[in-house]
């Protein structure tokens, strides 16, 4: 896998005509790009297509990349915008069951309780506005820093911080509400 230091010389060689080297960049960043697209589109085939389109666009605009920011930041922004365009085009697509799989955390609760709470939080996530939901999902993926999430979404770092705090507070409130309702129905 190429390192960050190797990236800029590699990009110069790609721009100079060694296009086959672009595969190394695609390999390095494909899972990041795909994850961003999937968080926005919530549909695997569509996310794959959007991420591929984003890489193709990035290749064509690579000569405009001046190396002032990290390549990853520049690429994530292209992926983000491409996925948003896809989302606008297919606004009414439903979420496939495949995407509803939830991974559960390690904690003190029993498996059944954990399952329930994870499902409740997934439900509560759906009630957040799209930007808050995306910010919090990307923030929790360890690989993306707060700064990267902010750059990607074209917003100030503080705005993203506020979004994430607000989203977590709302999720906790929703979870409390849902658990209370559940307890009442027992």
């Amino acid at each position: 896998m190429i390192t960050l230091q190797e990236e800029n010389p590699l990009i110069s060689r790609i721009v100079a005509g060694e296009r086959h080297l672009y595969a190394e960049l695609v390999d390095k960043y494909k899972s990041y790009a795909y994850t961003i697209a999937l968080k926005i589109l919530t549909n695997r085939p569509e996310a794959e297509e959007a991420a591929q389109d984003a890489f193709i666009k990035a290749f064509h605009y690579l000569k405009n990349f001046k190396g002032e920011s990290k390549f990853s930041t520049w690429l994530y922004r292209i992926v983000f915008n491409t996925a948003i365009s896809y989302k606008r085009k297919n606004r009414y697509q439903f979420q496939s069951l495949e995407n509803s799989i939830i991974e559960y955390p390690v904690g003190a609760d029993t498996q059944a309780e954990k399952d329930d709470k994870a499902v409740f939080i997934a439900k509560a996530l759906e009630k957040l506005n799209a930007a808050d939901k995306l910010a919090i999902q990307l923030f929790y993926i360890k690989e993306f820093s707060l700064e990267e999430v902010a750059d990607m979404m074209g917003q100030q770092e503080n705005t993203i911080k506020v979004r994430i705090h607000r989203a977590r507070q709302r999720l906790a409130d929703e979870l409390k509400k849902i658990l209370k309702e559940e307890a009442l129905t027992l």
């Binding site: 991974e103 919090i136 993926i141 977590r168």
Partner: peptide, 8 residues
Amino acid sequence: VLKGKARL
């Protein structure tokens, strides 16, 4: 829960 869900 969010930490557990998050992955590439």
